[in-house]
Amino acid sequence: MASSKLLLFPLTTLLLLLATPRALAATPVAPGPTPAPLNLTGILAKGGQYTTLLRLLDETQVSQQLISQLNSSFNGLTLFAPTDNAFSSLKAGTLNSLTNQEQVQLVLYHVLPRYYSLTTFQTSSNPISTQASGDSGVYTVNVTSTSNQVNVSTGVNDAPINNVLYSEFPLAVYSVDSVLLPAEIFGVKPPAPAPTASTVPSKHKKTPVSSTAAAPAEEADSSTNAARGRSAGWAFVLGFGFMSIVSLF
């Protein structure tokens, strides 16, 4: 009798062990919290000194593009954020002188199409592509990094990174005190080509006389010659008659 109880105990234990994983699998697991989407404009608004940049992001609709990229890209984004003082330092009327397309290019020039931490800049190779492009191709910047400073150069001006607003993959936002000016828009324009010799009228070149203008002069010469011929004929007749009269005497 005791032996039968001993056999039943391991069997019961085995059945419980086999049933436990199924019970655990059938138990629903509560979903974890869904991460909130990154709010780029909220990060800039919290900084308190990026009003002009926020306005440009909205007017050019670049903010919508960046938000979409942040939620779908595996590479992330990096934004250089000029302060309001940086925009105020521009020559008066600079932004208003740009076309709508150039304003979009200017904003996108401050965006790198991947996430860069400050340490990543130390090993990255230049030039670095931005999200701006034009007829000449993709606009680029050069980023140099030392132990205590990261500097962004456009070929027109330089802008050191002076503050980290946000840096957690997939987004990095760095504050800069200068607006990054792409050479494709703000660089020195090549001089206009000099006119060739064929397009410049020479001061010493004689103007050819047309055949129609010469016709009246030719007609006048022929009339003069005819008149001279008639005068010579009359002079001969008068001279011959005078000689005949003299011979009679």
Rank of each mutant, 00 (worst) to 15 (best):
D221W: 15
A215F: 14
I161W: 13
R22P: 11
S4A: 11
R55A: 08
F169M: 06
E218R: 15
A215W: 13
A26R: 11
P201T: 13
F249Y: 09
G155C: 09
A25Q: 14
L238W: 00
P21G: 04
R114I: 12
G76Q: 11
L98V: 02
P31N: 02
T34N: 01
S167H: 05
F242M: 00
P190V: 13
S3H: 15
Q149T: 15
E168H: 15
L112D: 02
N75R: 15
T224W: 02
E59D: 14
E219I: 10
Q101R: 08
D158A: 07
G76A: 12
S117F: 08
Q69P: 09
P37F: 03
Q105G: 03
V111C: 07
V150P: 03
V237T: 13
S202W: 14
P201H: 04
S73M: 11
F74Y: 11
H110A: 06
Y115L: 07
Q103E: 03
T146C: 09
G134W: 07
L248R: 05
V176H: 03
G155H: 05
Q149E: 13
L165M: 10
S244Q: 01
N126W: 12
L165R: 10
F236L: 12
L66Y: 04
G137I: 09
T51I: 01
L11R: 07
V141R: 04
F186H: 14
T120G: 14
V152R: 02
L17C: 04
A81F: 01
L15I: 13
L181A: 01
T212D: 01
L112E: 03
G155I: 03
A220E: 13
L112K: 01
L53E: 07
T154Q: 00
A183F: 00
A19L: 09
T224K: 15
V164H: 02
L8I: 08
T52Y: 00
V29P: 03
V156N: 03
T94W: 00
V141Q: 04
T41R: 01
L70N: 11
Y139T: 06
G48D: 09
L14R: 09
A36R: 06
G241R: 05
P195G: 07
A197K: 02
G93W: 00
T20V: 14
L54I: 13
M243K: 04
K91P: 01
Y115N: 14
I128H: 15
S211M: 08
A36N: 12
S73K: 09
V141Y: 08
T119R: 03
A213T: 14
L56N: 06
Y174L: 10
T60V: 09
L53M: 11
N148P: 08
T144K: 05
S153F: 04
V143H: 07
